[in-house]
């Protein structure tokens, strides 16, 4: 049952991913991208990571998509976007074929299960997924966390400097 659900969601993800690159209108592509993000959030839930699923929907399907839509509006894509770029088709097919071979070999021969870490599924179940993330972030990864605040501050100032030259 679960594997069937996985295949269903994977199929929807792939179809919407294809729609992102095949749609004529950029806004339709953006909507297909929203669908892809939601499917990825479903995968996070299936991997027992509900906090990641919430972030995926809030940040990617929410904020990043707003930004992408504004970029579409600002760039004002017109007729030039309808032209298909045909020169790179051969090279990109070769590259994707090689990528497929690499991925197949890796999955066939590699050990994808990984080693058992300090935090087991049992701990996650008893403590809680989001609580574990919060606890680790504020103890072990405290310095990167505080650096992230400085980074966000720099991003705020940078956005103003770039956009507010003369309005």
């Amino acid at each position: 049952m679960e594997i069937l659900f996985f295949y269903l969601v994977a199929f929807v993800t792939l179809v919407s991913g294809l729609l992102v690159i095949r749609c004529q209108s950029p806004v339709n592509s953006a909507l297909a991208l929203v669908n892809t993000f939601f499917c990825l959030a479903v995968f996070y839930v299936m991997l027992h990571a509900p906090f990641m699923a919430a972030i995926q929907i809030m940040v990617y399907a929410g904020a990043i998509m707003v930004l992408i839509l504004f970029v579409i509006m600002l760039l004002n894509l017109g007729t030039e976007s309808r032209q298909r770029y045909t020169r790179g088709v051969v090279w990109s097919s070769i590259a994707s074929l090689l990528m497929l071979i690499v991925a197949t070999v890796t999955i066939k021969t590699g050990q994808v299960t990984g080693a058992e870490g300090e935090i087991t599924a049992h701990t996650v179940k008893s403590v809680g997924h989001t609580e574990l993330i919060g606890r680790t972030m504020f103890t072990e990864f405290l310095l990167p966390f505080e650096i992230a605040s400085i980074l966000l501050l720099v991003a705020i100032v940078g956005a103003v400097v770039l956009a507010k030259k003369e309005v």
Partner: peptide
């Protein structure tokens, strides 16, 4: 839109503190 992203990320960091 950019400020929305930045403060959205802030909300996520604060939420990860709030649950623990």
């Amino acid at each position: 839109a950019i400020f929305f992203i930045l403060f959205d990320i802030e909300v996520i960091f604060v939420a990860s503190w709030a649950v623990a």
